[in-house]
Nucleic acid binder design. Structure first.
Lengths: 117, 117
DNA sequence: CGGTATCCAGCCTGATACTG
DNA sequence: CAGTATCAGGCTGGATACCG
């Protein structure tokens, strides 16, 4: 009963090989970098501040985290909102497009669970 | 009607944040490197030789391709079979574990299709 | 708090030459 | 054909210092 679905999935993946610029490559471009995917994972929980984000994803430098956040922002995956308070507060949040990456992350999660190191 | 599924997916992803070694990180480890995901994509079509693989994924050097193939082999994602002919023939093929990455690649494919550059 | 600026090390990757 | 060996470079990411 899973066969039909599997066949369709397989056919789609085979088509992908013929794309000049494979759609998979497009996704890889967005999730590029050592920390990007984990940033998205954190933000799936809801909007987060810079420091909260940093605490959640592991030992990343401020420079790198900033770089990745800027890249995601420019690609329309996240928004950056500044609240001009004292001390300043900056909140990052997934856009609709960013939220839709949930399916990719979920597939990764399931694979990792099923195939422990 | 999609809400229940979405809620379950979301709950799973939230759990993932609490994993000491997040299962997502595990997947990222396997699909590490600039070319690895594309190698898997190619092999989803079936067993391939070194040169065929190289032609399919783009401008990758022999050294890098060898490195990535060895890494995938050591992780149990692919097998490497040598046919001692003249000229020699070496065939790479996904293991069961490797095949199961199809779901991850498919999620990436769909996201890339839905969100063009 | 949430960055920026600068410098730098390491690693991934590639180019080239060569081999069983 | 399917690599290996070697060398070299670019880019990512980290350390440190400092700012609004």
């Amino acid at each position: 009963m899973e066969t039909e679905l599997d066949q369709r999935v397989h056919a789609e993946l085979m088509d992908a090989r013929n794309d000049r610029e494979c759609a998979i490559s497009r996704t890889l471009q967005v999730l590029d970098g050592k920390w990007t995917t984990l940033i998205v994972r954190e933000l799936l929980a809801g909007p987060l501040r810079f420091t909260e984000l940093r605490a959640g994803i592991g030992p990343v430098s401020a420079k790198t985290l900033t770089d990745r956040l800027r890249a995601l922002e420019h690609q329309g995956i996240i928004t950056r909102t500044i609240y001009p308070e004292v001390p300043p507060r900056v909140v990052y949040e997934l856009t609709e497009q960013g939220l839709s990456l949930r399916n990719v992350l979920h597939a990764m999660l399931r694979w990792g669970r099923t195939n422990p190191a």
